[in-house]
């Protein structure tokens, strides 16, 4: 029996494998005349993005999902956001099953991704009004609330009507969070919202995430590979590596688990990651980058 008043999100044994598309004639012809006839798609095999991932998030919590690039964080967010269909497992948002109540769940959630998903030629206000209409807000109310939120975020009056492309990335990311706030989501999915931002913009966005919980009582799922950020913002965190959740708990609990391995110095979440996965976050990121380069390095037939 689900407890919608307690759990904002329940993910149970969700798996997802991406298989590259192959034409029927590609499947059985990898070698011809001693030469590999590969394409970029044909060479890479299936990729297991999520492997029986389970987690539960309480209402009002900021829950961090930590992992290196390619660990499955964004796929998990996309599954919850109804953008990727899982192969197996189930997802419940406030007691609603994702497979059966997709549209209802879309009304309860919003997502801020690592790339600012805007029409860059449109102004922040125009982008926000578009989003507000999609979520059923009447135009006048949407306009008033959008203006209010954007001003609270510190946007100069003139920039409200200027194309988004003239704004810094940090400011664009704040507008993205404003757009999400406008729809008053019960569950907010923040997919690496501070990646690539300068330190000042990063701090501003982090402050905004803290204000989200304080002022809007939203439940937040925050994916990041910034361990300090997770430590500062999250009530609980799950560490994901190669599509699997390898640990889950409060930052303090996780650090406690590896305290004996740090030789007396206070453990960090980076130490937790190293102890539980056997490799550092940085090296995992580098390995993911190398994989990406290799997969584009194809051998062509003469």
């Amino acid at each position: 029996m689900s407890e919608p008043t307690t759990w904002a999100l329940r993910v149970a044994a969700v798996s997802k494998t991406f298989r590259p598309f192959r034409w029927p004639w590609q499947a059985n012809a990898p070698v011809q005349d001693g030469v590999r006839h590969d394409t970029a798609e044909g060479r890479s095999g299936p990729v297991c993005a999520l492997d029986k991932v389970s987690l539960q998030v309480r209402r009002g919590e900021i829950f961090g999902v930590l992992g290196p690039n390619g660990s499955g964080k964004s796929t998990l967010i996309r599954v919850i956001a109804t953008l990727v269909l899982p192969d197996s497992g189930s997802v419940e948002v406030l007691g609603l099953d994702l497979a059966r109540h997709e549209l209802e769940i879309r009304r309860l959630i919003n997502r801020v991704s690592v790339e600012a998903s805007f029409f860059k030629k449109l102004s922040p206000l125009e982008n926000l009004l578009f989003g507000a209409r999609l979520y059923g807000l009447p135009a006048n109310r949407a306009r008033q609330e959008a203006l209010g939120i954007l001003r609270r975020l510190g946007l100069r009056e003139a920039s409200l009507w200027q194309p988004m492309e003239q704004m810094s990335r940090g400011m664009q990311q704040k507008v993205a969070i404003a757009r999400a706030l406008l729809t008053a989501p019960v569950l907010l999915l923040l997919d690496e919202p501070t990646t690539g931002l300068d330190p000042r913009s990063k701090r501003e966005v982090q402050g905004l995430v803290e204000a989200l919980r304080r002022d809007h009582h939203a439940t937040v799922i925050l994916t990041t590979h910034d361990m300090l950020e997770a430590d500062a913002l999250c009530d609980r965190v799950a560490i994901i590596d190669a599509g699997r959740i390898v640990a889950e708990g409060t930052p303090a609990e996780l650090k406690q688990r590896v305290a004996s391995t740090t030789g007396g110095s206070p453990p960090t979440l980076e130490d937790v990651f190293l102890a539980l996965t056997g490799h550092s976050l940085q090296s995992a990121d580098e390995a993911a980058s190398e994989d990406a380069v290799e997969s584009s390095d194809v051998v062509l037939a003469p």
Binding site: T82, L83, L103, R106, R107, I109, G131
Partner: peptide, 9 residues
Amino acid sequence: TIEYTLMAP
């Protein structure tokens, strides 16, 4: 913007 639009309710 495709993902934002397609996840709209």
